[in-house]
């Protein structure tokens, strides 16, 4: 039970793939210019993470340490290709929107990092949970960053939502400012770096506040005994 709670916290906050491990920057910075794009990549990455974590966990006793990295790469590349093919066959409309993001997942080192740091040492069930929460944590950052950049860059929220959710979502687009000319910097790659930097800073401020409040409560400053393991 404690394990599960720990995995949940690690994935969503304390060891967040995007904000703490700072992994997967290529897809993260590349596609987060709208909420819908961020959400699309987030979902695809989460599915890949779960599938690769579970597979790696199942074979963890057979893989020798010296060949584990090429084996993980093989597994991840196969899974991503299979997901791409299945999407094309069964969700063609969704594939047309997310299609360009799918190959980007292979470049996301967060996936191989989880295979190496977690799945190769834990049971399939725990690895599944780790994949799920790591994926959700990554998705949350993608969506937040996408929202920030979309509001500043286009002055809207949820534009093109119908591409992912069908025609019902046609009216979902919220225009925050009429007559907004857009602010190109936010949409271009520099906007992604600035936005991500800001999010990392906000997270650190929150963590610091929490830590200082705790230490005042204890009336005694104790040195942290262990630093969170970096993957």
């Amino acid at each position: 039970m404690n394990d599960i709670k720990n995995i949940f916290q690690q994935g969503l906050w304390t060891n967040n793939a995007a904000l703490v491990q700072v992994l997967g920057l290529c897809p993260l910075l590349g596609v987060t210019n709208t909420i819908v794009n961020g959400l699309g990549l987030g979902i695809a990455t989460t599915i890949t993470l779960i599938a690769s974590n579970v597979t790696v966990s199942f074979i963890r006793h057979w893989v020798r340490p010296e060949i584990r990295i090429p084996v993980f790469v093989l597994i991840i590349a196969s899974i991503v290709t299979i997901i791409e093919l299945l999407m094309q066959a069964f969700f063609y409309d969704l594939y047309r929107i997310l299609g360009i993001f799918i190959p980007l997942i292979v470049t996301n080192c967060a996936i191989i990092a989880r295979a190496e740091a977690f799945a190769s040492k834990n049971t399939p069930a725990l690895s599944l949970l780790d994949g799920l929460f790591m994926g959700l944590g990554f998705t949350a950052v993608l969506v937040t960053l996408g929202a920030m950049r979309e509001v500043i860059g286009f002055g809207t929220l949820f534009q093109q939502a119908h591409l992912m959710f069908g025609e019902v979502a046609q009216g979902l687009t919220i225009t925050l400012f009429d007559d907004y000319n857009g602010y190109l910097l936010a949409i271009l790659p520099p906007g992604a770096f600035l936005g991500l930097g800001l999010l990392v800073a906000i997270k650190n401020v929150i963590d610091d506040r929490k830590a200082s409040r705790q230490s005042i409560g204890e009336l005694q400053l104790t040195e942290p005994t262990d630093t969170p393991a970096k993957a």
Binding site: W62, V63, R64, I67, P70, V71, L74, I75, A77, S78, T81, I82, L85, L86, Q88, A89, F90, Y92
Partner: peptide
Amino acid sequence: VLLGMFAVSGTFFVAYTEQQTRPLI
């Protein structure tokens, strides 16, 4: 040999999926 086996099985799964999905795609 282990690495080779993983490569073969990975290729097999991808090829199998490709073959199954080709008419659908």
